[in-house]
Design a binder for these strands. Structure first.
Ligand SMILES: [Zn+2]
Ligand SMILES: [Zn+2]
Length: 835
DNA sequence: AGCACGCCGACT
DNA sequence: GTCGGCGTGCTC
């Protein structure tokens, strides 16, 4: 490496005539504080090669924040005096982002009415945008023994609090939380020098630096080298001439002094290098591309013929081999030196799936999801930036994976609701963002599902209007692989069963089918639709249910392990408490515990079919980490005959030995107060039915219902999903529901009931004055569950009857400003759920 | 968002 | 008078 150029002592620093070697010494940044609009100018210290797109740490007010370098202006703003300009503290991450990456983020910000900084936050791995922390440290030697005498109460209390700390210090945040009067007590202690205050700088993840050894010269036999040295060089040569120092030493059982000597003699070089290790990969046996059915082959041929941005809807019935099409579509992408992005539902990211990709593509596969540690996520992210051809498999947020040469994007199970973010803004849908990525890259986008979302369907079959939305191409895989039949679906009218004197929750047909299961050694699933899905506790004396103290919902109880007292939990805010001795309303000690739907089913199984072995598979039994997977493995290994579960059963269970699927009461899916209820019910039933008969043995589905005439049931029986969607579309059109309109849900919440309602009202009034003609405002209305996690929630719903209008008129910023402190506003564009 | 500064009522 | 509360405005 060339030595740094020597500074010429005579050269005066002259801002008017910039040094050609160094670009302008100022940088305009966006600070990590979405509330603050606009750019801030900083000086670039000579030792930092700041470039546009870099992630920086800058001083801001009394703290240090993350920031993004946006521009390198030739001069600072004229209204800013040079003394006001502070210097950049550090470069956290050099920003060699792929072309169009910022365009993508801007597009997300604009469409979802979200400050660009909030979008950047979601796109970057967590922790990269750090901020400083103010900490207060005790200065013990300076404090006299009779300190108490001098101090007023607030200061004394603070001092005593600090004395509790093992390290003699606490973060200022923590102190303020512990005692509200901390603010008052601090100046006194600071003045006396008994405590000091300091800024702990942000600590973003750094790539792990490791020593690497590279062979630069082969020794010839005459060279005076020891045996150990020769061995080591030979070993290094066998490994391709390049190894991590630690690996080399381990391999040769040598000490580092040998390597140092070899470096001195000029045989090897030792360098510090980034070690971006992804998770430990056990090598898998490679598999070969499988033979395709004619439909698969046709779909693949179409996809491989694409050279431009193009959305493809791959509508493949359950068991039709979509994954094999994905795999074979990806292979040529990698061969061209490009990368592929595969997005899967949260629950679908199983070892089963990733192994399938690894078997085909080996170490070119990497997984990116929220369960990785911050460090692992950062390493993976950095690795993606390097641009080697690879397959990234991830959940929703992986749609922002910074892959420079993107050749293909796939959304598997594209109808899945986990692709939509609803919590912090931006409330983006990965499918929508993926379409933009596909256009910017440009590259094809495959949306795969057995039950495509109505929006996706509409896009594939509606008249292509002027580019908005981009029409997509429809590909169908209408039959299962190896010509396996679709499961036979039987609808059982439970009213009929009742008339015939069967009061059990199992129809005679289902009961028979369950009994045969034991004889044939096959397995079954029992699906319990969620409706009164969770447990609750109520008082036998006064009838009141035990409620969450922070939410307007009742608490669920969970089966104690080992006879301990029952644990009560809130599903909304994660409040937990031990079951009380008495009713908190009337003091009665007699409490009744109501079981969940799945619990009731397993109880009935015990009673009527005691020989059947079952596993309960619901949010209760899969709560702990890894339980989900463990239960599935148990089931797959035949440790039970039946899996009894809720919604979870519909996702990603691909077990060949399952031949029976029973739906306990489909009706629980219909009457939800949501315009998407029908669509979702149909998707759920088709998906769960599709779990049957995936192996050599044909499957059967027994669908119990009190409404056998319901249109959803009819569609499921006919396997006529497309017809159902056409029908649903016809219904939505006159009502101005999506996709014939665009919805925007404003969620307003705060800790105070009245204030929330007032702000909602005020925002509604303000919006009314700004409403374009084709836009309707509904509300304000309290959320279906008014209070969650101590916050009161109100909604405003905008209905854009002309979806091509867009949201350029929408005054997001002004609304945000009108909320005032303590009131949170979330703007959810295209909400999936209105609750 | 933090964190200053500054203005006002109610307690020593 | 000062203690303690909160509203307003700034951060390169
Ligand atoms: Zn009671
Ligand atoms: Zn709660």
């Amino acid at each position: 490496m060339a030595p740094p150029p020597a500074a010429s002592p005579g050269a005066d620093y002259n801002p008017d005539r910039p040094n050609p070697d160094r670009p302008n010494p100022w940088v305009e940044v966006l600070v990590d504080c979405p509330q603050i609009q606009g750019l801030f100018t900083y000086a670039i210290p000579p030792h930092l090669p700041v470039a546009i797109g870099d992630i920086l740490t800058v001083p801001f007010g009394h703290q240090q924040l993350g920031a993004i370098a946006i521009a390198l202006p030739s001069a600072p703003p004229p209204d800013l005096s040079p003394s006001q300009i502070k210097a950049v503290i550090d470069i956290v991450n050099p920003g060699f982002f792929p072309r169009h990456y910022w365009d993508l983020l801007r597009q997300v910000a604009q469409y979802y009415c979200t400050p660009i900084m909030a979008v950047i936050r979601t796109a970057l791995p967590p922790g990269l945008l750090g901020r400083s922390q103010r900490r207060i440290r005790l200065n013990a030697p300076a404090i006299p023994p009779d300190a108490e005498v001098f101090l007023r109460p607030a200061a004394l209390q603070l001092l005593q609090l600090l004395r509790q700390s093992k390290t003699g210090e606490y973060s200022w945040r923590y102190l303020q939380q512990q005692m509200p009067t901390a603010q008052r007590g601090l100046p006194d202690l600071l003045q006396r020098g008994w405590v000091s205050s300091y800024l702990e700088p942000p600590s973003p993840p750094r790539p792990k630096q490791q020593k690497a050894v590279t062979l630069v010269r082969q020794p010839d036999p005459t060279e005076p080298l020891t045996e150990r040295q020769r061995q080591l060089l030979a070993s290094l040569g066998r490994s391709g001439g390049d190894l991590w120092l630690s690996h080399l030493l381990q391999q040769c059982h040598a000490s580092s002094s040998i390597v140092t000597t070899l470096a001195k003699k000029g045989f090897v070089v030792i360098q510090e290098r980034e070690n971006l290790r992804s998770e430990a990969e056990h090598p898998l046996d490679r598999d070969q591309p499988k033979a395709l059915s004619p439909h698969q082959a046709a779909a693949l041929a179409y996809i491989q013929g694409l050279t431009q941005a193009q959305t493809v809807l791959l509508h493949g019935v359950t068991g039709s081999g979509k994954t094999e099409v994905y795999l074979q579509a990806i292979a040529p992408v990698l061969q061209r030196g490009q990368s592929a992005l595969v997005l899967v539902p949260e629950i679908g990211l199983t070892p089963q799936l990733t192994d399938r990709f690894r078997q085909r593509f080996g170490s070119q596969v990497c997984v990116y999801h929220s369960a990785l540690s911050d460090g692992e996520r950062y390493d993976t992210w950095r690795q993606m930036l390097q641009g080697d051809p690879q397959v990234v498999i991830g959940t929703r947020s992986a749609v922002f994976a910074p892959l420079p040469h993107l050749g293909l994007v796939i959304l598997d199970e594209e109808h899945d609701s986990s692709f939509k973010q609803s919590q912090p803004q931006p409330c983006y849908h990965a499918r929508t963002v993926a379409q933009w990525r596909s256009q910017l890259a440009p590259c094809p986008l495959i949306l795969g599902s057995a039950t495509p979302a109505l929006e996706t369907w509409h896009q594939a079959f509606s008249d292509p209007r002027e580019g908005h939305p981009p029409p997509s191409h429809y590909l169908s895989l209408p039959s299962r692989i190896y010509d396996r039949p679709q499961p036979q679906i039987r609808v059982i009218d439970m009213r009929q069963e009742f008339h015939c004197g069967n009061r059990s929750i199992f129809s005679r047909s289902l009961r028979n089918a369950l009994e045969t299961l034991r004889e044939t050694g096959q397995q079954g699933l029992l699906f319990v639709p969620r409706r009164g899905h969770s447990t609750f506790v109520s008082c036998r004396s006064c009838g009141e249910a035990l409620d969450c103290p922070h939410c307007d919902v009742s608490l669920s109880h969970h089966q104690p392990h080992g006879g301990a007292r029952s644990l009560l939990r809130c599903h909304y805010c994660h409040y937990a408490s031990v079951q009380p001795e008495q009713c908190p309303h009337c003091g009665s000690p007699y409490l009744k515990f109501f079981g969940s739907g799945t619990q009731r089913v397993t109880q009935e199984l015990e009673r009527h079919l005691p020989d059947l072995r079952w596993i309960r598979f619901d949010s209760d039994t899969t709560r702990t980490k890894g339980a989900h997977r463990a239960l599935l493995t148990q089931f797959a290994q035949g440790e039970a005959d039946i899996l009894v579960g809720t919604q979870m059963l519909t996702k990603g269970i691909d077990l060949p030995q399952v031949t029976l699927v029973g739906v306990m009461a489909a009706d629980g899916l219909f009457h939800l107060p949501d315009f998407r209820a029908g669509e979702q019910a149909c998707q759920t039933l088709l998906q769960v039915a599709g779990r049957a008969g995936r192996g050599a043995e044909p499957g059967q589905v027994i669908l119990q219902t009190y409404k056998p005439d319901h249109e959803v049931i009819a569609a499921v029986v006919r396997q006529g999903y497309g017809d159902y969607l056409a029908q649903e579309l016809a219904q939505r059109s006159p009502l101005h529901y999506p996709p014939y309109s665009q919805l925007v849900l404003l969620r307003i919440s705060s800790l105070e009931a009245d204030r929330t309602a007032q702000v909602a009202e005020a925002l509604g009034q303000f919006l009314t004055s700004r409403l374009p003609e084709s836009v309707l405002l509904l509300g304000p209305a309290p959320a279906p569950i008014l209070r969650v996690a101590r916050r009161f929630r109100w909604h405003l719903l905008l209905k854009l009857c002309d979806p091509s209008l867009g949201l350029d008129w929408f005054p997001a910023l002004e609304l945000q400003q009108r909320c005032g402190p303590g009131v949170a506003l979330t703007i959810d564009v295209d909400p999936l759920s209105l609750s």
